[in-house]
Design a protein around this nucleic acid. Structure first.
Lengths: 206, 206
DNA sequence: ATAGTGAATATTTAATATATTATTCATAGT
DNA sequence: ACTATGAATAATATATTAAATATTCACTAT
């Protein structure tokens, strides 16, 4: 073999440094947004050269993409805890899931307004991410629907189609532009009304 | 009296010219959007000076606002015809109303992509218009809900709150940004699924 | 007084030059 | 070969200026 093979711990150390870079980017992105964060800043925070960042990520946009995916995973883990709570009926579970999602989004937007900037940039440049996010949450919602079908006889045809319909009816509560014009109380009220209708629609006819 | 009173037909003729101006603005706005339409173009189309426009509208933005309100009224009239159709059950009426609204929005966006530009400008500068539009459509939707309550025993608490919830669940079908990424068939499918759920939720329990 | 205008002024937008920043690459140290 | 860097280049953003456009106003005609 002409070239020696990689050291077996290369992936690990690479992975660790990638995480460090993402940690640094995370802080900058959340406070400054995408455009106003410079590669030199991220590198500086880590005491390394700008050029070295490119050994770990092909571009700034790719850092933002990985950052976004980490955000998705964090939110999904937080929602997963809600889905897995055992002390609720299916209806209460669905309600809790929707409210948890709203509260999470609202709080993030409140704490890091610059996030809006990243959302806009990624929606334009990496449209697949939108689908990635939706499908992650759909997977969790599908668990709730499946449980409701089994234990409460919810009227469900195709679980994924139903899940997509429900998620679509929640767009107002996941889109920064819309959320920004309303108070949390207003959002909770309307979401509650939508949920009443949805849950009623799911319950079986006697 | 020092100043003679207004000629009694002044309001009428003023009103007529205002309409003429709006007709001219309509053509320009729909094809060129807000920013790219110049006051000089509108005036030129009418064979008058730019300055004269200001005798009828205080600003370009006010012309756009009146234009938007005319658009709302046109859409509302078209929806009103659907609401007033006698040959449908309440459920069919609701379904027809939602689909008519989607088709109207989709067709407008398809025929006049520049409309997006006007929507953005007006949402930023005249946020009240959003509320004006919503309340206009809410009024019509409320008629359908009231009829369903009366004739089919739909479970309705506050009609307006329910109407707002339903309209909110339809945001995806009234927002250019979202519509642009989907085909009409996709939009129809998801809206149909949402409607199934909604209508099921409204029907009384036996 | 009412309808209208040309010309002056104030804002916006478009074009350009300038400066930052992203990205690449040849090279050094291990 | 692996990690890393400084310096070069390419792409973007910022600042500056020029041009276009919105808006005002003093004035004409009726």
């Amino acid at each position: 073999m002409l070239f020696p093979m990689k050291r077996f711990d290369t992936d690990l150390s690479d992975g660790q440094l990638k995480e460090k870079i993402l940690d640094a980017a995370d802080k900058r992105f959340k406070t400054q947004g995408f455009k106003k964060t410079a590669m030199a800043e991220i590198a500086g925070d880590l005491g390394m050269s700008t050029a070295n960042l490119y050994r770990y990520f092909p571009s700034k946009l790719d850092i933002a993409e990985s950052f976004a995916i980490r955000c998705f995973i964090t939110k999904e883990q937080s929602l997963k805890a809600v889905v897995e709570a055992e002390n609720m009926s299916s209806s209460e579970g669905l309600r809790a899931f929707a409210l948890a999602s709203l509260h999470y989004n609202y709080q993030q937007l409140q704490e890091y307004p610059a996030i809006n900037d990243i959302v806009v940039a990624l929606c334009a440049e990496r449209p697949d991410l939108v689908e990635r996010k939706r499908s992650g949450e759909l997977e969790l919602l599908a668990l709730i629907i499946a449980r409701g079908k089994k234990s409460d006889g919810w009227c469900v045809g195709d679980i994924n189609e139903l899940g997509e319909a429900i998620l679509t009816s929640w767009i107002m509560f996941t889109t920064p532009t819309f959320m920004q014009h309303q108070t949390l109380a207003q959002l909770e009220k309307v979401l509650g009304d939508i949920l009443n209708l949805t849950i009623n629609g799911l319950r079986p006819r006697t």
